[in-house]
Design a protein around this nucleic acid. Structure first.
Length: 259
DNA sequence: CGTAATCAGATGGTCGCG
DNA sequence: CGCGACCATCTGATTACG
């Protein structure tokens, strides 16, 4: 989706020399208001067409870095949470009411893009006409769950594992808002999913059809200047929980004759 | 070798509350 | 006054690519 398609009403405010057609990656951080104030000040000094070339370049660089959009004459602004929600394919106010602004930016910056994930999961629809049982690791605000729901796949059981309480609240709230008839089971920590716990879960809900999740990128992200320590970093090493749990679930499913 | 992009932490501040 | 929630601001290096 292009910027013009996503923000048709703001096109009249875009300087002719801002040639961006697509935004950059949605980040967990918001541009400082001081930066937007500086840009506004430059426009009151020069105006749109008379902006010196080097200033144009500076402003454009800031716009790219912080994903700013033009919301008024000479007025660049960060995306608001509800705009990010729509860009990511969620319903408006998906994260509203459960978390502070900072927490919403954080959770949204870490989320899946719904349409993209739904594209990859679309092959599941004919395979599970009567619903699906999902083990969702690092669920966050429920990108995987929402994708399946938007595909029209009935969520029979969702076991969602998410360590942040506020973010769990977002998922819980969505489950109610979207009138899910299935069962939502929330867990806090992927590290708690031992062989015993997973056996009990499968005894309770039956075979698991899908394991989905995106592990933390904190120690991988280029934006991290402090602890970019790689896949063995304190958060990103949780990646290895995914194959560990996958192996255990596969073993249990074999033992029970589900595979 | 320049341009560009990047699922982020640490710090210090305000503010409300007990 | 301590505490926690919240917020604004500061902090480059590693990649990819042409």
């Amino acid at each position: 989706m292009s910027i013009a398609e996503a923000f048709p009403d703001t096109q009249k405010y875009w300087p002719s020399w801002d040639t961006r057609e697509k935004l950059n990656c949605i980040s967990t951080r918001k541009a400082p208001d001081s930066l937007c104030g500086l840009i506004r000040k430059l426009f009151t000094l020069h105006g749109d067409e008379d902006m010196p070339y080097y200033r144009q370049k500076e402003i454009l660089q800031a716009c790219r870095k912080w994903n700013l959009v033009w919301v008024g004459p000479g007025q660049a602004a960060p995306l608001e949470p509800h705009e990010i929600e729509l860009l990511l394919g969620f319903d408006k106010d998906h994260t509203r009411g459960c978390a502070s602004m900072t927490e919403r930016y954080d959770a949204l910056g870490n989320s899946f893009q719904i349409n993209t994930v739904a594209y990859h999961l679309s092959t599941l629809k004919p395979l599970y006409p009567h619903g699906i049982t999902v083990l969702s690791l690092f669920s966050g605000i429920g990108g995987g769950e929402v994708s399946l729901h938007k595909l029209g796949i009935y969520l029979k059981v969702v076991i969602a594992v998410e360590i942040n309480e506020k973010v769990r609240g977002v998922l819980k709230s969505w489950w109610r808002k979207s009138c899910q008839a299935g069962e939502l089971k929330l867990k806090n920590d992927v590290r708690d999913l031992t062989h015993e716990v997973l056996t009990d879960l499968i005894d309770e809900v039956g075979p698991i059809d899908l394991i989905i999740g995106g592990s933390p990128c904190n120690n991988l992200s280029g934006n991290n200047r402090v602890s970019r320590t790689g896949l063995n970093g304190s958060e990103s090493s949780l990646f290895f929980e995914f194959p560990r749990i996958l192996n255990i679930v596969t073993q249990i499913m074999r033992d029970k004759g589900f595979l």
